[in-house]
Design a protein around this nucleic acid. Structure first.
Lengths: 110, 110
DNA sequence: ATTTAATATTGCAATATTACGATAAAGATT
DNA sequence: AATCTTTATCGTAATATTGCAATATTAAAT
């Protein structure tokens, strides 16, 4: 059929998949990196930073926001976007945990 | 239109996006978690662990392999899958780095 | 050599994503 | 009020993903 069978997986699995999916496009990775680079909320220039048309960028921002990776607030006639640290922390913890488990129990098989 | 404009982004951005995309589906997250849980290469039972048909699971495994998240070796009439630690490390480093940068420079804006 | 077991591939339908032109909405500027 | 600037939404085309039945492949077991 084509639709993801979300209901068959745990909430945590869907949560991680949701965050990962949002970062599963180079434009969205680039947006996150730009937000970090300038170390501020961005009111403007995101569109100029990316090799994509304005509606496309707007759509990517929307997806990042829906996934909880960024927050956006209206600031005059611009909109102020920043990274939501909680989401990044979740990812960091998740992969840190996996990494720790992998090095600890080193299975000999492969 | 409709195809991702990969060529407009850096190799690193595409690399992270590729790994993230592979984890952007709960079934693939579940596969990774199962591989960690049993702490071994899995020759068999992955299909039984997931609420999906065998061809679908096979396809997800293929994608994880293409993305470099798992390695697979033929082992008799079964195939032995294990996590590729390097990929997990890349993700851990990436998000660790972002997290560090965020807490260090704490911007006051949002 | 046949059968069995495990995994992969093919083909296809349903759905989702990506991208952008056109247009709308909303606050700032004149 | 008219205009400019910035961001969002709509509509639509191109492409990708998801899922599975049917079938193929491959190696072990009989």
């Amino acid at each position: 059929m084509g639709a993801t069978k979300t209901e068959h997986f745990t909430g945590k699995q869907n949560a991680i998949a949701g965050l990962a999916k949002a970062l599963g496009h180079p434009a969205r990775v680039a947006i996150i990196e730009y937000l970090i680079k300038v170390d501020a909320c961005i009111c403007g220039d995101i569109v100029n930073e990316l090799p994509l048309a304005q509606p496309t960028v707007s759509q990517h921002l929307k997806e990042l926001k829906n996934a909880g990776l960024i927050k956006g607030e209206v600031e005059g006639n611009a909109i102020c976007y920043c990274i939501d640290e909680k989401a990044i922390e979740k990812l960091q913890n998740y992969f840190g945990n996996i990494s720790a488990r992998l090095t600890k129990k080193k299975s000999t098989c492969c």
